[in-house]
Design a protein around this nucleic acid. Structure first.
Lengths: 233, 233
DNA sequence: TTGTTTTTGTGTTTGAAAACACTAATTTTA
DNA sequence: TAAAATTAGTGTTTTCAAACACAAAAACAA
């Protein structure tokens, strides 16, 4: 259950990519309607089939967007890290959610009612274009991933996922350790394979000196090789 | 090679979904800059890695958007049928194309320079929102398809694809025969399987009385069963 | 801190689909 | 209209990864 917290200390200014393009009046609309909530690991933000009601923004933590498959297997569609928006796609397409969202660890999320979102969308062309760009980028990733997930073998898919996590969410100060950290199960879900195969294959990569693993932190040692595996199975 | 034709008889008014939301001046911009070309089967519109330069609209025929995989296998990402736009995603994400586009049969396409597109995008909020909706819808389909293609077995994937073709491109007057017609190879590419398995599985469906096949036209006889297969492998 | 649950790790078996290898039938084009 | 090139169709073999089945370790709660 989302626990409403006294997190109003977290200001809307944190929504960097959109805050600066809003007019005074628009900022005021958000100020009067926004909400901040804190979630703990495993909390569900929304589920497949529900109607979207908020534009959400992760300012701290990590959210997993996924679809439930058959036999309990889940396919991870996107990972949302700070500062990124989610929940708006279904609304813009005038659909119910086709995915579910759960938080991966302690996570702070801003909630903006879609009514406010629509008001601004209808008057601020830069705002509208910002989301145009978000969607276009995500669709590119999805198109790319469909073909990859579907055609490559386990090694290629895992290599691909690790590089994807690096490219999209970045590394820590050492330039090699991934910022996102996830369980083997989630990494497997992202790579479209069973947990057992994910663990096995990651272990292979470790023994081949391609990556180093410390708990749930993955450090890329040989990106060249990883790229190679991702490319040629 | 695209052959420029005397197709100026085809008027921009055919671009139904956007034409009605443009101002007089914007219509004039398009009139002065657009182009119409006719292509024949197999002509390439653009290829992976190229820079986008036009917003395109199919007004007649069919275009296949795909990614080249390994060992010559291609993954079909989208099919564009009249009247739909394509080529703008990469531009909006400020990327090069990650897919390629070829025409499937005799096809007539409108070309609008991205410069003109940008001008209108920057001043007409309804125009911008139209594309917002297109992208949001396509991203939903992509998210949905990733999980489907990846988790289901051949029968489920083929059933899914046939239903997808029906839902997205419609049926002929009888309400059962798919409008889109494609080779077994393309149907297999859409369903992420080898041509041999696509043919085999389609034949199975025919012998089970689920669909009827006449050349490249597919008629759905038992949608219930198809849904069932698509859902439970 | 102890018990419980989740996550990680590994071996074996089994099944499904890819790869391969052809033939037949259609389309296309020269 | 004949020849060439696709496309459709089918059987066999091989390979890969899922399913199953555990054991061990780590994380989490009571």
């Amino acid at each position: 259950m989302p626990r409403k917290s006294k997190l109003k200390s977290r200001k809307l200014e944190e929504l960097t990519s959109i805050w600066k393009i809003l007019t005074k009046e628009e900022k005021e609309i958000l100020r009067q309607n926004y909400d901040v909530k804190e979630f703990k690991k495993g909390d569900i933000i929304y589920q497949e089939g529900e109607k979207p009601t908020y534009l959400m923004c992760v300012v701290e933590g990590q959210v997993k967007i996924f679809r439930n498959g058959f036999g309990g297997r889940e396919q991870i569609v996107r990972i949302i890290t700070p500062v990124s928006y989610f929940g708006y796609r279904a609304h813009l397409a005038k659909e119910d959610y086709v995915t579910s969202a759960v938080v991966q660890c302690r996570t702070v999320i801003f909630f903006i009612p879609l009514k406010s979102f629509d008001i601004i969308l209808n008057q601020n062309i830069k705002f509208s274009q910002t989301f145009l760009k978000f969607l276009a980028a995500d669709l590119g990733i999805a198109d790319f991933r469909v073909a990859n997930l579907v055609q490559k073998h386990v090694r290629g898919r895992l290599a691909e996922s690790i590089l994807f996590l690096k490219d999209n969410y970045g590394c820590e100060a050492d330039g090699a350790t991934l910022v996102v950290s996830m369980t083997r199960e989630d990494l497997s879900g992202l790579s479209n394979m069973t947990t057992a195969n994910g663990i096995r294959t990651l272990s292979q990569f470790v023994s081949e000196g391609i990556v180093e693993v410390n708990k749930r932190k993955i450090k890329i040692l040989d990106e060249e090789k990883l790229l190679n595996i991702s490319h040629f199975g």
